[in-house]
Design a binder for these strands. Sequence first.
DNA 1: GCGGAGACCCTTTTT
DNA 2: GGGTCTCCGC
Length: 720
Amino acid sequence: MDVSYIIDPLNDEQRQAVCAPASNVLVLAGAGSGKTRVLVHRIAWLMQADNISAYSILAVTFTNKAAAEMRGRIERLLGMPSKGLWVGTFHGIAHRLLRAHWKEAELPQSFQIMDSEDQHRAIKRVIREMGLDDKRWVPREVQWWINARKDEGLRSHNIEHRNDNYLQHMVEIYREYEAMCQRNGALDFAELLLRAYDLWVKRPDILQHYQARFQNILVDEFQDTNTIQYAWIKLLAGQTANVFVVGDDDQSIYGWRGAQVENIYRFSKDYQNTSQFRLEQNYRSTGNILGAANALIANNTDRMGKELWTEGSEGELIEIYSAFNEMEEARYIVDKIIAWNEQGGLRSENAILYRSNAQSRVLEEALMQTGTPYRIYGGLRFFERQEIKDALAYLRLIANRADDASFERIVNLPTRGIGNKTVDLVRSYARANDVSMWQACIDLIANGDVTARAASALQFFIDLINTMQQGIENMELYEQIEHVIHHSGLITHYEKEKGEKGRNRIENLEELVNAGRSFEQDDWEESEMDMMSAFLAHASLEAGEGQASEGEDSVQLMTLHSAKGLEFKQVFMAGMEEGLFPHSRSADESGRLEEERRLCYVGMTRAMEKLVMTHAEKRRLYGEETYARPSRFLSEIPEEFVQHVRMQGTATPLTAQSQYSSNPVAEAAPVQLGQRVYHEKFGEGVVLNYEGEGRHARVQVNFDDIGSKWLMMEYANLIV
DNA sequence: GCGGAGACCCTTTTT
DNA sequence: GGGTCTCCGC
């Protein structure tokens, strides 16, 4: 068989990795070095050259996007559908296993997946029911703690707490939460992995089946695996499978959610006969961008050591722009994008990256003002929207009456006279008698234990759900959704919400019907599940990037985290300020700081042609004005790669001076342009510019050591 | 039981 | 700044 189409497009290093003899392989792949390409070609190689069946191959990724892309590229390369091949996220594959073996995993067949918000609500409820103070036991923190334990493979009974009061409480909450999930047939994200792992540990016969099948396991982004994922792979691999992992320790940015970079180092020890390959040739970025990124990341200790290089040109210098405040920063970025666009470039070739989602608002406003189309990734995703979750809760309750979380969400939405008191009553009856809240309603009505008014309201709700279930029998999936959003009263309810918000919600609900329709066409695979259950699981596992206006050429906005794996011709990194990036919460531990630096490295290496990093001296964030120094990461980039750009107008300070000199306030300024001043922290410098009056007066000083800065006269204490 | 007004809290990244 | 929660009047 001719396999040249598989190996010809590869460079030497890539080819060695792709064609490595069947054994364990660790590929250390730098940013832009063709990581996905190696995985895709390796799979094709296994099938075509080694004649391995697609059925014996399992490829695991972290995001749905990556999984979809890998599958698509494999199919394009082979020119046929990848039948039998398992490609998916850790969570998706765990879910698939649990659906197939729900009984052995001790789950109800109708088990549901909770997203983070569902989990948060559930934990909150547990804390309240235990009579604990949620000021002291903050649901968010507890949630975080429980997830971290699950990621380590620990259940409540595995955790020692001896005389530690705090731990003891945490473990108790954890235990109660576990019990509640089990009662309701609800699984959180971490539980999917843990259950799938436990399933194999408890049932060696099932494990053996999969071990025999998946003799070839491939893992993408290996540096992001956590303890349980590592253990899961290891269990599956057993003694005989060949494991091929690709990763980059410099791009490990998920330590905060349990990812263990150490897993890369461990790999060669845990898997015998591992051959190791390094991909350092970069096909993405210019020499200057790579030089800067290499220099930055060299500040981290604990690296496996890699240096990216390119055959391409040096390209343009990296631009560092010092803005005055966040609005000016945004305007600068948008202007550059518009210029790019006017010179014939696409808007979609531009990405604006930021550390935290809170930064996106100002950027959005600037884009909107200029009528520049944009698209935001992350933030609130489709299936996470309130109205969508309401609709899904109806569908879930129809599918599974024991789903208490869904019950609570919609029992009085739209309001139908079932208030907190009644719900409390239902909840405590359910707890006391160990039945679902649904069943509790039925019992309470039958026993006459509720007021006549509450009883009739509850009965109305029960009838509503039952009637809808009958109503949607024999309907197509999308018709079922349509039926439910109308008959539940959700549409009417949201129609009452005024303004654009309400209209959007209606549109989203209608979009949900469309989502059902396209799910039927594209995503539905025959399996143990009925289509509705599959759709509901899909809604939890894939938050749904799909937004409207996808077709339009638009600027891409996203956090640095979600930019990993992507590339853009021109990249803007906004908010390069101490406290924001590196984030203040990362300052205390050095490990966290290194992770921030890796995040910066990830951001920089997204750029193909041009990288612009901006910082603002003054920023309104979380409703408060803050002043921040430029990020230390900026000063870690050697000057040879950098071009500093100052605020517009300041490049010609003297003309600016003539404009201002007619201004009486400027004339009254305590400093003069061109004057030499001394600042306690920044040393000596020359006054370049001055503006504002009184308390708000600001002065720009070009310091001998650190360059130009805007300072508030009020605080600067300049010595003339 | 319902809805509005104001206090209160947080505030990184996501499958 | 804004989302959530609580309280209060209807």
